[in-house]
């Protein structure tokens, strides 16, 4: 079984982003970038499926300018076999990404496509589900457990009230939640080996997909800042303030 994993290059999750002075966007100049944490979990899950003998090949794909090759190499160092970069000048929106991935799916014919449930930059939580609709594949989103069987996959999903389990016919889409696994660290020998693994580059035009955006970004502003309040000395003072000043209890 071939597994395709889609990954995104995003701001490192430890970095607090700043808004540009002209409010046109956030400022990503000289900011540390990394593999989106949910995508890292997706790569780890695919590599584990290979280690368990369920997957025969793990292919990673990322969409964007040349810089995304850095994250593809990270995924290769974590254990993916080969990588595909779909080159675009800018980052397209989720629907265009899903259409590009649909074209990659048509070429690669994976049995399982694993994606992160959301990217920590745009916080959209859309691409996996959109790819499901475009390819006609069933989906197990927000997965905390994945069990592959013959011709199907059982996915336990994190939902608002608890957990839901669904059984999906292959080929299928899985999007990862935080508790699915704990990604490994890439070892130095694996980082060196990753440099020699195959990385193909294709363009959005090669795949016949129009990547023009239909949602315009008009403005980006900093959120209203909360200012720090006061320190109270003890529980009695806290309860008194909550009762008489804030009037919330």
């Amino acid at each position: 079984m071939k597994v395709l994993v889609a990954v995104k290059r995003v701001i490192d999750y430890n970095v607090k982003v700043r808004v540009k002075a002209d409010q046109s966007d956030v400022d990503l100049a000289n900011v540390k970038m990394a593999l989106n944490p949910f995508c890292e979990i997706a790569v780890e899950e695919a590599v584990r499926l290979k280690e368990q003998g369920h997957a025969t090949e793990v292919v990673v794909v990322s969409i964007g300018p040349k810089a995304v090759q850095e994250q593809l190499r990270t995924a290769l160092a974590l254990g993916a076999d080969r990588a595909i970069q779909v080159e675009t000048d800018e980052l397209p929106d989720s629907l265009a990404v899903a259409k590009l991935l649909q074209a990659v799916v048509a070429k690669e014919e994976p049995q399982l496509v694993i994606l992160g449930k959301q990217a920590i930059d745009s916080d959209n939580n859309q691409t996996g589900q959109m790819l499901g609709a475009l390819t006609g594949m069933p989906q197990g989103t927000f997965a905390s457990k994945v069990n592959v069987a013959e011709g199907s996959v059982q996915v336990t999903r994190e939902i608002d009230g608890g957990l839901q389990t669904v059984k999906l016919q292959l080929p299928a889409i899985v999007t990862t939640d935080l508790r699915l696994n704990e990604p490994r660290y890439a070892s130095l020998p694996n980082i060196m080996k990753a440099k020699k693994k195959p990385l193909d580059v294709m363009s959005a035009a090669d795949l016949g997909v129009n990547v023009a955006r239909t949602v315009n970004l008009l403005k980006v502003e900093a959120p209203a800042e909360r200012s720090a309040g006061i320190k109270v000395a003890d529980v009695a003072e806290l309860v008194e303030k909550l009762k008489n000043e804030a009037k919330v209890i």
Partner: peptide
């Protein structure tokens, strides 16, 4: 966006 560290105004066309 960005975990609420920025607020985007967007227009859907």
């Amino acid at each position: 966006i960005y975990a609420g560290n920025a607020i985007a105004t967007v227009q859907a066309t």
